[in-house]
Amino acid sequence: MSLPTTCLPGQPLPVSPGTIPGPGTYISNSEITSTLTGLPSYNATTKTISVSPATTLPSPLPTISSTVLARVTRINPRQATVAILSGSDTFQGVIRQQDIRATEKDKVKVFESFRPGDVVRAKVISLGDLQNYYLTTAGNSLGVVMAVSEEGEEMVPVSWREMRGMKTGKVELRKVAKPI
């Protein structure tokens, strides 16, 4: 089995039996076929053939279980609406009250977790409805990564639920992501 150096959409890829089609490929007439202009590669351990594209899309789409960065645009007692940052486009998403943290979900208050303008690291749980992707921040590594206080001062995390102003030392409540 020798792979071509490059491939184009619609080009069948020579594979040995039992190979799994990976990203950038699909099965057409029981043949694994490329869907992208790019470089085919074969992973022997997973037995997967995939095509890496020559050009990446300017704004990749959020997919389920992908981790995204989003800016909080507005909040209400039930949910926080966010704009998922992806290249040149922004996709709208919501973080519902019950998805903010994993424990004591009923006691979560949205305004004690996020404020408009915060940048949040979140995970996509559903492609959602017409308008929104559904996101969650349940998890230690997920939550607010950047925030400014009511006075417009940058804040640093001090605990999983508190952030403190860098000069004034004023403490505000947030669902904070564990710094990496």
Partner: peptide
């Protein structure tokens, strides 16, 4: 479309 890197079944 192919230049954009959008997945296509064929051209």
């Amino acid at each position: 479309i192919a230049d954009a890197g959008i997945e296509c079944v064929d051209l």
